[in-house]
Simulated assay, not measured.
Amino acid sequence: MRAGLIDGKAIAAEMRAEVRAEAELLTKEGWAPKLVSISVGDTAAAELYVRNQQKQAENAGVEFEARSYPNETSLEQLIGILQGLNGDPRVNGIIIQRPLPDHIPVKVLQKAVHPLKDVEGMHPATIGNIVYNDLALGPCTAVAAVEILKTLPLQMEGLNVTVIGHSEIVGKPIAFLMMGLGATVTVCHHMTRSVAMHSRAADAVFVAVGKPGLVTGDMIKPGAAVIDIGINRVETPEGARTVGDADFDSCAEVAGWITPVPGGVGPVTVATLMKNAVMATRMQMEHYRDAYARTEV
């Protein structure tokens, strides 16, 4: 019996419908959600992502502006640009496209984005809030992966979960998000002695490493959920194709549910970005109203 295929596109479509409804409400209140995308240098690698984000934004009722700056733009100039966007009430979310030129450290730019406009969920304050189970604007990929798991008929409380990969923006946030739901979580990384020992004991496995075929069917507990976050381009006799970190065919023979790549976590990640955009807009609207509300004397 093969695993049930998790349809990320269908989950994303439902999320976009909810986002559009919220965006329409905000627009009626005078706060039309708007995202600004920042690209620097040779933008060819990011162009596909930008076009996809723009398309999804339009479908969700969110205005999208793509800005591109030359490679020689300095860090100081970019920080000044971000400060201007932070102070502009017409801009509700900022996306920093990667890759960036070598002289631009991405973490410095992420810190320069105001937490209320951090729709990617990359600001250190945003990441830190997850420890306190504050999920206002969580990291998009991590939140998307957990949201996918929540659509399955599994009880989160007490669920045994293994996370393979411990990056600051995916693996670690997933671990904290799942602990916030009451799961028992094991995190594996390149120094883990036996990843298979942990993954075979798990009711759900998240994998986000960037190594195609890393997780195979003999590493999965029968009936477990496999949430594959990896995106890798590999060459085959039929040409280049996109695959995940899990060996799909062998895992599908054992797992109860599995996400395809592409079509699994990816669409839900973009939908989560749009959800964060409308959430950030509402938070900013409430912030401005609280800060500038008229008081009776």
Rank of each mutant, 00 (worst) to 15 (best):
A10Q: 14
V19Q: 01
A21I: 03
A23S: 08
A23V: 08
A23G: 00
L25K: 07
T27W: 03
L35S: 04
L35K: 08
S37H: 09
S39C: 15
G41E: 09
A44R: 14
A46S: 15
E47F: 04
E47G: 10
K55D: 15
K55S: 14
E58L: 14
A60Y: 05
V62F: 07
E65D: 13
Y69V: 00
T73N: 11
S74V: 10
G84Y: 08
L85V: 09
N86S: 03
R90C: 13
G93L: 09
I96C: 09
Q97T: 11
R98Y: 13
R98W: 13
L100Q: 10
P101Y: 11
H103S: 13
H103L: 02
L116G: 04
K117D: 11
D118V: 03
V119A: 00
M122Q: 00
A125R: 13
A136Q: 14
C140K: 12
I148D: 10
T151R: 05
L152M: 14
L154I: 11
Q155G: 12
M156R: 12
M156P: 12
N160G: 05
V163P: 07
I164W: 08
S167H: 10
E168F: 07
K172Y: 00
K172W: 13
P173A: 13
A175Y: 13
L177Y: 14
G182I: 03
A183M: 03
T184W: 12
D203N: 12
A208N: 04
P222G: 12
N232V: 02
N232M: 00
R233Y: 12
P237T: 07
G239M: 02
A240H: 05
V243T: 03
A246H: 02
D249S: 01
S250Y: 01
T259A: 04
V261M: 04
P267M: 04
T269I: 02
T272N: 01
M274L: 06
A277F: 11
V278A: 15
M283W: 08
Q284N: 12
M285Y: 14
R289F: 02
D290W: 00
D290F: 02
R294V: 05
R294S: 12
T295F: 11
T295L: 15
E296H: 11
